[in-house]
Write a protein that binds this DNA or RNA. Structure first.
Lengths: 230, 230
DNA sequence: GAACTGTAGATTGTCAACAATACGCGATCA
DNA sequence: TGATCGCGTATTGTTGACAATCTACAGTTC
């Protein structure tokens, strides 16, 4: 029997992963300060679960890198240094360049699907820029790039990028309202989209490299990269 | 007080990670068949630990991708398809290309350190080829590439690559004694080393791409990619 | 004989109590 | 006055037991 429309297995994924997703969203939104300790018992109560599942979720986020664990001490929210920012964006560049290559080697219609998605995200982004909703802008920024990588269909590449996206949002969080050159942001993404549509391989690669390089400059120019300043 | 030489914090890393490392080594060595279910209680007893830490270790390996978890069913050893092989090597290519770029942009002495390390690995590899120890060859093969990426010093890139290395060893495992063109293997690694030493950027990139492409061909040419045939 | 239903077994998911460890504060001693 | 030692507290690490869920097999009905 085929699964009826609108009906799907309830919570097919492991519980720990659900908790982890929830926590990740909280962290990248800045609900915890960098370096802050995450108390197991307290969080378990708040999320109305037990320490077991929560521990597994925390450990998951440790592996992703947005939490760090110290034995017999507990887990702490990652503090980002300038070196971390450079690392993250270096890996992002590698992944996106690979994604670009894969995309341009694939069928035109698949690329078209991705472009359609990206176009919608840019539209939303422009809207949020007008509203100056920085939290939303950061989310859409990463959503753009995640969709770009998702276009490859390479599940491993996508999974890697999701982690990078979370870390990037933590980076951007430290910039806060000081998202520099806000109009350039939409413009740069639009350019990447255009180059993808016109299948300009060299141009696309160059645009991605520049996009990453500028991001690192913006993020590391600030004296304190790691503080939250809500 | 500075830590005395030769003395370091005992088991500074979380227990689950130690168990995970142990299990990963067992899996990539083929101690479990692909698709086989991993029983929590049984394994916990064997490793003389409790189910709690073991669960965390299993979950860790799930996140890495060499185990897959089905809710209320348990965890199973990953079964590799031809598509998986393509994915893995596509990501490896992306990571190694990025590593090559970073390495060639860095100081000459750092590159020299890496080259020294790689040279030693190739020497060991040649020795094991003579002895036809396939398990050791596979380990050295991945050790070579892992060292290559480690040369960049990018901890995130390194962590990503360690996962890929584990998956690659699982791929190679299915090839078993049929490591094709065994002399070419040493030769190809030697060439990568030479191109790194002479800082031939284009040549190195090309060599890496060819190396990966050939590996995929070797691995997918076999009718059954997923079976173990000890 | 085929399909469905109910039960049995096994395995995972969750929980709460216990043990071990590290940090912070106060007392002690040089 | 300064450093060191010891204790108390808080937090994590671990364990075993209990509950929930799924698969497989047997029994029943059409």
């Amino acid at each position: 029997m085929a699964a009826p429309e609108g009906m799907f297995v309830l919570e097919g994924r492991p519980t720990a992963q659900l908790i982890a997703d929830q926590l990740r969203e909280l962290i990248v939104q800045g609900a915890f300060s960098p370096g802050q300790q995450v108390n197991e018992s307290a969080l378990a109560s708040q999320l109305s679960t037990s320490r077991g599942p929560l521990r597994e979720a925390l450990q998951r986020l440790c592996q992703e890198g947005i939490l760090v664990s110290k034995r017999n001490r507990g887990v702490f929210v990652l503090e980002l240094s300038a070196d971390d920012v450079k690392e993250i964006y270096a890996v992002r560049e590698a992944v996106e360049l690979a994604a670009a290559t894969t995309l341009l080697d694939s069928d035109a219609e698949e690329v078209a699907d991705t472009c359609r998605e990206l176009k919608g995200i840019i539209r939303s982004m422009a809207k949020q820029v007008a509203a100056s909703d920085w939290q939303a802008i950061a989310r859409l920024d990463m959503q753009f790039h995640t969709s770009f990588v998702s276009g490859t269909g390479n599940t491993r590449l996508i999974r890697i990028y999701e982690t990078l996206a979370a870390e990037s949002r933590m980076c951007i969080l430290s910039l806060e309202v000081a998202y520099p050159r806000i109009d350039a942001l939409v413009q740069e993404h639009q350019m990447i989209l255009d180059l993808l549509e016109t299948r300009d391989r060299m141009g696309l690669q160059g645009a991605i490299k520049r996009h990453m390089q500028k991001a690192v400059e913006d993020l590391t120019s600030k004296p304190e990269v790691t503080g939250i300043s809500v």
